[in-house]
């Protein structure tokens, strides 16, 4: 088994607030991240897939195809957008880095070629904060 990784970037606005809570509760839990007028980040996305090497191509998968999936499914819908307002697949989801990671996994996974498995979605919100998601089947 080999692992193949691709980096992509997108820049977006968001805010953290739970619509079922009062402003005071949101402020207490999310602090300045709850700012009503949004703030934003340069997100760095690192996606790793795994599988066997095709003996004819020498590829796990064509990285151009992986790049196209990431562009089409993640970067185009998210880049230069407001994650709370502009992205249909995030409707009703609080756009924390954790939830974004899971939503990105769900966007990418159905588009991978047969025999290629998604291994990890790693998402940096800032250079010092990142989240990793290894999929719903990972135990412990």
């Amino acid at each position: 088994m080999v692992f193949l990784t691709r980096h992509e970037f997108f820049n977006a606005a968001h805010r953290l607030s739970n619509p079922h809570w009062t402003d005071a509760q949101n402020e207490a839990v999310f602090g300045k991240c709850a700012n009503a007028n949004w703030h934003g980040h340069n997100y760095e996305l690192i996606v790793t897939v795994k599988g066997s090497v095709n003996t004819e191509t020498g590829f796990l998968m064509d990285v151009k195809v992986l790049s196209q999936i990431l562009q089409q499914e993640v970067c185009e819908p998210l880049d230069h957008k407001n994650l709370n307002l502009d992205v249909p697949f995030l409707n009703g989801i609080l756009p924390s880095t954790e939830n974004l990671c899971i939503a990105i996994w769900n966007r990418i996974e159905p588009h991978l070629p047969k025999g290629v498995q998604l291994h990890r979605v790693k998402l940096y919100e800032t250079p010092r904060i990142y989240v990793e998601y290894f999929g719903p089947l990972l135990n412990n």
Binding site: N11, A13, W38, H39, H41, D86
Partner: peptide
């Protein structure tokens, strides 16, 4: 272009 997106975007 996309920097004009009405609902804002953001940066670190």
């Amino acid at each position: 272009g996309k920097c004009f997106s009405p609902n804002y975007h953001g940066h670190n």
